[in-house]
Design a binder for these strands. Structure first.
Lengths: 255, 255
DNA sequence: AAGTGGTCTAGACCACCCC
DNA sequence: GGGTGGTCTAGACCACTTA
């Protein structure tokens, strides 16, 4: 609808907000791309025209376009216009701190878990330092075998202060999503520092994942932080080498 | 100057731009933090007050603040104010991966290379598609064993269109840095898509790295892009599993 | 109720690209 | 020169926090 611009379609943006206008604009443009109306490489209508079509101001539109640049969906060229990014990758990964369940959903697979451990224990000195808490603080240990369509993919060992969400001890994590439960408790992960390495599987890992001992596994240790860079929890995920790939993207400092 | 706000200091922002006002504001606030005038955890003056101090509009100020949020320098809290992020680490990366040379520098080790291959060959169909070029276009193949203090750490296989920097064929890469040469030729990498996986070493890799066959290795394949998302080159790096860790950080999509 | 960030607008001028 | 993105402004109203 954006590209044809016959001029008479209903704007589809409601000023009496359920959501901010610029987010509605983001979703609307994303929709045009996902539905194939806007194809990779195509030029968008000029900003001023989009403004009248969407019935929003140029500042608001540009906030939406900026978000889509961050997500690598669009790019701009000064005197020329806005273009849909050619990368076929573009639609998949905004920039992932994606939970296992979210990944599964995106790939249209069924995620399930076997809980190996789900109990509270006092924080050791090392754990306390890593999480900026007092030693002895109750720490919830959650260890799960993560499966996609029942195939074991990874072992996830997460440790987090019980104070973040005290009801975790009563949760059945063979079905529940940790990130969902945390969200319900008002915990909002924003970033994670990660260290990634390749190792050979030891006996315990080999058994849990159903691979040979010494088979290559990918191990990622994460420290997850909130928007103010306060540590939330640590997580150590071991992936069967031949069953998973991490995807990410890097960028150099923007001006 | 920002925090004391006696009201009589010169704005230090010049409207007759060498740089956009919002970038000047970013640098000015960064400076206050780096110089210790603003310390981690401190609250900034209200936006409207900063506007009059810096003599810029609120929209412009907020663009600067938004950039500083991206860089993890500041964070906001709705009815409360703007705060300097606590993490001292955060100054560098927007979203980055530590490069081989950077790792060497951090560990105070010496980086060196053995060139396995440095020659031009016509692009295959697959390569052409990946790089959005015509099949048969001359492609420069650079394969190196990367060492730290003479210990082999990784094999780096990079393929790039010779047109990017024709003098690459005459360069001695046992010493030279590829990124430096590209920068000299005006090539500016902006982002990279990466896929990371764990594998077992095959015979060639095992020999080059001096590890057992089937030993775990970390393989990272990158597609490096410029600011407009045009593909520049592809790079495939295989690390000996017990000799290297990748460090990165993720962030969750901002709303 | 006062203070503060979050969103939004209408209009202006500049810099770049292409004809 | 005409079209397009990039920057900037002054002012308005809303939502959240704190007292």
């Amino acid at each position: 609808m954006l590209v044809t611009g016959t001029g008479e379609t209903v704007p589809a943006i409601r000023p009496d907000y359920p959501e901010p206008l610029w987010i509605q604009a983001v979703n609307l443009i994303r929709g045009e791309i996902d539905s194939g109306v806007l194809k990779p490489g195509m030029r968008l209508p000029p900003e001023r025209e989009l403004c009248t079509q969407l019935n929003i101001s140029r500042v608001t539109l540009r906030k939406a376009l900026g978000k889509l640049v961050d997500d690598r969906v669009l790019s701009s060229s000064h005197g020329r216009g806005w273009y849909v990014s050619s990368a076929s990758v573009g639609k998949e990964w905004p920039n992932s701190l994606e939970s296992f369940s979210e990944t599964a959903a995106r790939m249209a697979l069924t995620a399930s878990s076997t809980v190996l451990r789900a109990q509270s224990a006092p924080a050791t000195l090392d754990e306390a330092e890593e999480l900026s808490i007092a030693p002895g603080t109750p720490l919830f240990h959650l260890e799960r075998i993560r499966r996609l369509n029942d195939v074991p993919i990874a072992i996830d060992a997460t440790r987090l202060p019980l104070s973040l969400a005290p009801d975790l001890v009563d949760t059945d994590f063979s079905e529940a999503s940790l990130y969902e439960r945390l969200a319900a408790a008002g915990v909002q992960p924003a970033r994670a520092d990660a260290i990634i390495e390749a190792r050979g599987a030891d006996a315990a890992i080999a058994k849990a994942l159903g691979v040979e001992v010494a088979a290559p596994v990918l191990m990622m240790r994460q420290l997850v932080l909130d928007a103010d860079d306060r540590p939330l929890f640590v997580s150590s995920i071991t992936y069967a080498g031949d069953r998973y790939r991490l995807r990410t993207y890097f960028s150099r400092s923007r001006s």
